[in-house]
Amino acid sequence: MSKGIVCCIYLVLLWVPSCVLRTVAAETIYITLEKDNALAVVDPDLGELVATIPIGQRPRGIALSHDQSQLYVATSDDHVIQIIDIKTLAPVGVLPSGNDPETFALHTAADILFVSNEDDSLVSVVDVNKQQVIHGIGVGVEPEGIAVSPDGQWVVSASETTNMIHWIDAESYNVVDNTLVDPRPRGVAFTADSQYLWVTSELAGTVAILDVKTHQIIKTITLAVPGLNADRNQPVGVVIDPETQWAYVAMGPANRVAIINAKTFAIEDYLLVGERVWNLSFSPDYSRLYCTNGVSNDISIIDLTRNKVVKSIKVGHFPWGLVVKP
């Protein structure tokens, strides 16, 4: 009897720490695999790929629904956005998206998606609940990066060939202004206070910071990795922490993530990650940064408390986009 109790206590003691660990960082990363037509599911604490789910042709853009119960995944060659139940990982619906959806952004408050249709020079506005395209907004040639300002006022679309940022009123869906930026703008990100917009220009190797009030560029940062020819610095994804203290830029074939002081605009460091680093996402507590490396088929985990790359995990062919669910 007493033996049994001791045993039970022992088991409970064994179970408790693992349970605590689980709850401390039970986050999951979902990654689109462009060439595998699949979605990879990674447990970053175990450092393991836990599942790979077939999802449709050429999956790229990915986002989490407001209630975090569903994933939206653009399957570009199927010309739709899939809705995936996050518990069962089964498809539960399909949204129309216009032709060749690549990236998209979820409205900060409403269940509205803004989708870049590269081949048609169009941004489609999709009502998730009605499952309908409710509007089409004409923009420049090959729209790519797209973001909604946290205050819900602006949608910005970057067109790669026109080299412009289009400022779209998030309510009327009208393009109200355009800002010319450096060649091939790719990634766009607002600061948490909706005051500034960061834009990466892939071919110029620069990051521009725009004032949301004036739509003008207030600062251009040129990325330069020592010992690397300038034309390898091709920034793509950009994320900024909620305090607007640090910004992180994925530098494509330079195989590095740049750490930029978001207050002084000084470049703090370049961290070596995998090949052709593409998109970035924070862990929910902002202690870690995850990035997809398109050519080396893995993701890197960066510990932001030490600014060190701590692990890389093989996930599949051409990892493209990622989201992290707490």
Partner: peptide
């Protein structure tokens, strides 16, 4: 055509 798409805005 691409120039004119850009030109629309400029």
């Amino acid at each position: 055509e691409d120039n004119n798409t850009t030109g629309k805005f400029t």
